[in-house]
Design a protein around this nucleic acid. Sequence first.
DNA 1: CAAAAAATACTACCATACAAGTATACTAAT
DNA 2: ATTAGTATACTTGTATGGTAGTATTTTTTG
Lengths: 227, 227
Amino acid sequence: MLNLDISKRVNYSTRDRVYEVLRENIISLQLEPGRSISEKEISEMLKVSRTPVREAFVKLTQEKLLEIYPQKGTFVSLIDLHHVEEARFIREHLERAAVRVACETFSKEYIIQLESNLHMQKISVEEKNYAKLFELDENFHHTIAIGSEKELIWTVIQHMTTHLNRIRMLSLAANYNWDLILLQHERIIEAIKKQEPDEAEKAMEEHLKKLTFEQEELKKEYEKYFK
Amino acid sequence: MLNLDISKRVNYSTRDRVYEVLRENIISLQLEPGRSISEKEISEMLKVSRTPVREAFVKLTQEKLLEIYPQKGTFVSLIDLHHVEEARFIREHLERAAVRVACETFSKEYIIQLESNLHMQKISVEEKNYAKLFELDENFHHTIAIGSEKELIWTVIQHMTTHLNRIRMLSLAANYNWDLILLQHERIIEAIKKQEPDEAEKAMEEHLKKLTFEQEELKKEYEKYFK
DNA sequence: CAAAAAATACTACCATACAAGTATACTAAT
DNA sequence: ATTAGTATACTTGTATGGTAGTATTTTTTG
């Protein structure tokens, strides 16, 4: 059921290991939105005391992945579509700004990283390895942020897009138009190489506007997951 | 020394009250960057047990206001100038995007709010009430975010700009060119009223680019506060 | 006197016990 | 059968004691 492999993780504290395990299970929808989840339940599953579980709960509440109601219970937060759209809006504008910077300051090293990433994306499309594609896609955008020395932007996006990522999990990966996405990635790389900020921003804008899913269909199908 | 007025706050839990007290004291620099701060110390000061203090520490660590070193100690985080500039960058681009939306969707109600806010700003300048000006300034930008239905943007900015706000505390408020700032606010309102997104964005850009302080001077004067 | 070693005093971490509030199941009275 | 009241089984919140690791101070030793 749940991925509870707590032992192999490298973090020092039990609290952080519990946090990571729960976070992954929430985003991957192993822990369903709206599901009740108690300190006792998790502490018994993971064979640790309630204290580190509580502290992990506090962190996850701050990220709006959990909602704690004192003396009542704790619940995996429902997906808020308005929240999702705002997160997409934020992501779009931050990455548009970042890619402009990239056109000015990007070093060759990072361009090579992007190109090899894109190469692997093409292979993954042929292999229909969608999990790997998700990962490469994340890595592609992260690299742009790092290369622009705007690491914090990626941190913000990661925090903002938890709801967005849960929707991406709902939507079948096979439904994505990966050919188009790869074309867009290529266009972004070209613009960075040619140092054309306007072109790069435009490409990024088109790329991230596409993230609006068939939300209404999803909401009908998985009604109980939504607010 | 510290503002430890824990009792009057409305939040339910001790944890949240401790969190708020500490947060305010860190941002206002009552708790100096680099200062050592232990669970025991705070729990005795506030006369609560160590548990809620720990949980408040976890929250503050996530906001990068504290740094916990297991078995060693907990310290108020130093101000990272690169971090500050990235936060400013993020703020600038998010607010530029928000104010464009404002030009399209802003209701009359919010325009009135902005205008009355600006009016109070003028009074506060005459009275040289700089604390009030800070508050009004925050409120001005918050209103734009709310009116654009981009509440989340303001949440992000609040989280991002804790380091920035600590620098603002260092810098003497009297040094601000409030006349210029008020002119810029006026220009922003005008652009929203006339529904001219380009003009609004430009005004906002100029406004938020000014936030780069005399950082190097501050760093010399308060060297121990910086990373 | 100086350097190494041991003792002591810290730290955050975790487990546990109890407290306070809430929801549910059960019982009794109408 | 229905409803009101009560008991019980939950929940999260807080306090406390012990643990393991670290830093400092004291003692010992060369």
